[in-house]
Amino acid sequence: MQTIRRMMDHMYWADDALLAGLRGHSDENGEIGRLFRHLLIAEQVWVTRLEGKSSAHLTLWEESDVASLEPLARDNEQRYKRYIEGLAEADLDRMLDYANQSGAKFRTSIRDILIHVALHGHYHRGQINSALRRQAGIPVALDHILFARLDEAE
């Protein structure tokens, strides 16, 4: 449970750091907003499923400006924290039945879903940083070790 919590804490931190790093940045072709929105909507999709609700109404790929995404990031963080707070270690291996955005049915453990959510964000934050480098030359430092060093500094 501790590792899952740590991965999720890094996810919240990385989403916040990316939001901060993107403030004032001009998204030349909309790529950054589209990728960041996808990342956050995917987080929303999964927490919605974990809460036992349908995610069919959520669209994974749409254009967005980065400034409008902060409320979604905050809401996702609160929902995940609330959900995870109610989990015991044994709950992580419980299987969850859900349908994907196309309606196909799946069954996956809560542990694997939470690991997927954390790793999916890593992938897309890397894509966003690549776009930032192409557009402005200044990616946002989001490595887990940087997050870990914050605890060491306290």
Rank of each mutant, 00 (worst) to 15 (best):
A20C: 05
G21T: 06
R23C: 08
G24S: 03
E28Q: 10
N29V: 06
N29C: 02
G30Y: 03
G33D: 02
H38G: 07
L40F: 02
A42Q: 08
A42I: 06
E43Q: 15
E43D: 15
E43G: 14
V45R: 02
V45F: 05
W46I: 03
V47G: 06
R49Y: 11
K53S: 12
S54F: 12
S54N: 10
S55I: 04
S55R: 05
A56G: 09
A56T: 10
A56L: 12
L58S: 10
L58T: 06
L60P: 00
E62K: 14
E63V: 08
S64I: 04
S68W: 01
E70R: 08
P71G: 00
L72S: 00
L72C: 01
A73L: 03
D75M: 08
D75L: 04
N76C: 05
E77K: 12
Q78Y: 02
K81V: 08
Y83F: 12
I84T: 09
I84Q: 11
I84S: 05
E85L: 12
L87A: 07
A88S: 11
E89K: 11
A90E: 13
D91M: 04
D91S: 07
D91V: 01
L92W: 06
M95C: 14
M95D: 15
L96S: 14
D97N: 15
